[in-house]
Design a protein around this nucleic acid. Structure first.
Lengths: 72, 72
DNA sequence: ATAAATTTATCGAAAAACAATAAATTTATA
DNA sequence: TATAAATTTATTGTTTTTCGATAAATTTAT
């Protein structure tokens, strides 16, 4: 499972969703969807813009969480 | 700029593109496009499958490279 | 040279981003 | 607690892009 977590970096940068959406260049509504893990894909241009806006690495905001099961 | 790099992990797992495409469940052609940074977006389901197939983290295969310029 | 692996190219279909907008909900604050 | 601000959710339409299927071209290995 892929998890998006913008909260930590947003807090660190003291940035609101509104501010972030402006910096990133996508609408508040769509950024909210992304933030709440309702999106099913992402354009690299968007991911790039987010990393840039939050001045962070990819791993600061997107994580792969293996589903527990076989081979723990 | 967002960079996809599958080579390192593929080497580590001694896995060919062909094998990976089968494990991931997308065609060889499309995986090649992704591997060579020709894709403009990615579905989380695909990213998830790749991390699973290569047993690695997101940051092992996708990286944000800030463009040098202002504020170095 | 031959085979295997990978890349590139088409085409079409399905999926999904994203904009624009508005309403609902949650959270903060005076 | 009333009000405002921030965030989430919903809807509709457009556009973009994935991805499958397939084949050809190219590169790499044997």
């Amino acid at each position: 499972m892929i998890i998006i977590n913008l909260d930590v970096m947003m807090a660190k940068r003291k940035m609101s969703l509104n501010q972030l959406s402006e910096k990133v260049g996508i609408t508040l509504a769509n950024l909210s969807i992304l933030k709440n893990n309702k999106a099913k894909a992402i354009r690299f241009s968007t991911l790039d813009a987010i990393c840039k806006a939050l001045d962070c690495r990819v791993e600061d905001i997107v994580e792969y969480v293996p589903d527990e099961k076989e081979g723990i």
